[in-house]
Amino acid sequence: MSEKKKLNKDEKKLMREIFWNSFMLEASYNYERQQALGFSIGMWPAIKRYYKTKNEQAEALERHMAIFNTTPHVVTTITGVATALEKEASENPNFDKSIINNVKIGLMGPFAGIGDSLFWGTLRIISVGIGLSLAQQGSILGPILFLLLFNVPHMLTRYYGGVFGYKFGTSLMGKASSSGIMQKISKGATIVGLMVIGAMSASMVKLQSALVFTVGEEKLPMQDYIDQIFPLLLPLLYTLFMFYLLKKGKKPTTILLITIAIGIGGSLLGLI
């Protein structure tokens, strides 16, 4: 199995089937097995290809009913890897089938990490940012652009992720290295994500001091001084404060209510 080999005709068909079968991953999301039902349906194109008897097919389906959870937009990469492993398992009688679920579990965590920061944290935030600036002016282009900006990369990732996963899984059988690339992508995605969230919180969190000191005749609004030293200092501090509370284990709903209380209380007292 060479690493860079071109996909043959049947493999291309397989890639398309993986793509189309991947969409229902979360249709029956639940506490017991999370996305397992959707994932095992996504494995069906591989299972029906590689296993011809009903017993073997049932065994494989049951294997993929194990608890599973990752970012829905990047699932095909894992499906692709698992497909390559199932292929090996069906051809090689000495293959230890427990490896398949171990690899899946090893991948779903990092992929959830990368996928969440890439899709939920970065791509969605950029799409919202651009869509929002139009929607705030009342333009219908806002929501439309939002959906397009998010879903074009989403669909490309869904298809080519499957191809990448399948090739990667196939080469994994040859040599076990090249996993360093995952860490690099993860680190890069985190850097971009953090910068984008930084920029978005600067542009969207609104907090201004309404305090005015009166010295003699002169009125000195607090906000003017803050603006001279560090514009948007207050939104920054507030965002970090929220982060700090979450880190301390406070529930999102709790800090949501705290924020509403601070907003109403602060405005009643004339502080903000």
């Binding site: 969230i197 609104k206 965002t239 929220m242 907003g263």
Partner: peptide, 14 residues
């Protein structure tokens, strides 16, 4: 005012 602050909760969650 609270509406202006609430995105901070969202960003902190991210």
């Amino acid at each position: 005012v609270a509406g202006g602050l609430l995105p901070a909760v969202g960003f902190a969650l991210l």
